[in-house]
């Protein structure tokens, strides 16, 4: 199957460099809508949905292939090969940061820079490593996910009263969240939250920017510190945000940190309009 259809690839803007945006667990490419337009002013921006999420082809969800993040990493490499002529700037949120990590090790030639938004190589605590959670916490999360995916729950729909802030987004967003097959979501949750990619960190020689929120419940500061210490070419920028989705809650701060990093980068990135 054509990767465009498989991963619901959307391309916006045009620039000499290409930025690939990859969403996190439970989301879809719509989560990038606060920062994608700004990036599109300078870059060719590629948006896509992970297989099993958003508007991707659910039929292509192969439980064996996507039983580890490597399945998603190989999809990413196919997308870059298909869509971009040269190496890309890869921006991955949460689990996608780990997918980018694995892909950049497999094919470093395809990665110019890597920006990890709220990454965590491993959510579960191991000895000295503080991922933030115990295995039973993760089990509980999976259970909550399961409850809220039951058929009668329209949990994601807006309440009847009160006007939504951006009504134009509502329907589309709800669709992209709810469309996810509960079984796939459950499987993806387990693959995401039980993953341990710490061993991959020292093998990544792509220049990497880690954007971490100051009080992220999901990826605590200990995780950012660990990554900075382990990755050979990483930089860490702490954003003043207590969420896990700074590209949504503080998109401007997020963009600023990204452009700052890219501006001083070698090799240089020709930005037309630095903010």
């Amino acid at each position: 199957m054509n990767v465009y259809l498989r991963n619901n690839i959307k391309i916006i803007g045009k620039g000499s460099h290409t930025v690939v945006l990859s969403h996190g667990f439970g989301c879809s490419q719509t989560m990038w809508r606060y920062i994608a337009p700004a990036l599109a002013k300078h870059f060719t921006v590629i948006l896509y949905d992970l297989v099993g999420s958003g508007e991707s082809s659910l039929a292509m969800y192969d439980y064996q292939k996507y039983d580890t993040l490597d399945g998603y990493a190989s999809d990413l490499l196919e997308i870059i090969d298909e869509v971009s002529d040269g190496p890309v700037i890869f921006v991955g949120h949460s689990v996608s940061a780990s997918i980018g990590l694995l892909a950049s090790i497999a094919r470093p030639d395809l990665f110019l820079y890597q920006i990890m938004v709220s990454p965590s190589p491993c959510f579960i605590n191991h000895d000295d490593y503080v991922g933030g959670f115990s295995a039973s916490d993760i089990e509980q999360l999976c259970e909550t996910l399961d409850s809220n995916y039951l058929g009668w729950s329209s949990s994601m729909a807006p309440v009847m009263m009160g006007a939504p802030e951006r009504p134009e987004l509502t329907e589309e967003l709800t669709n992209s969240f709810c469309r996810t097959d509960p079984k796939i979501a459950q499987h993806f949750a387990r693959v995401t939250f039980f993953a341990d990619n710490r061993a991959a960190l020292p093998q990544c020689f792509t220049d990497t920017l880690i954007l971490q929120c100051s009080a992220d419940f999901i990826a605590p500061s200990s995780v950012g510190e660990y990554m900075l210490a382990t990755m050979p070419k990483a930089e860490l920028v702490l954003l003043n945000d207590d969420g896990h989705c700074p590209h949504m809650s503080t998109p401007d701060a997020c963009l600023k940190a990204m452009f700052n990093y890219l501006n001083k980068a070698t090799p240089p990135i020709g930005l037309r309009n630095v903010c």
Binding site: G26, S153, S154, S155, V159, M160, E165, T170, H244, C245
Partner: peptide, 19 residues
Amino acid sequence: FYHHTHWAPLLQLQGSVSE
């Protein structure tokens, strides 16, 4: 966890969530 991954982003995007 769920609040972070689902509820909060949705509430921000669509202004409400239910059930």
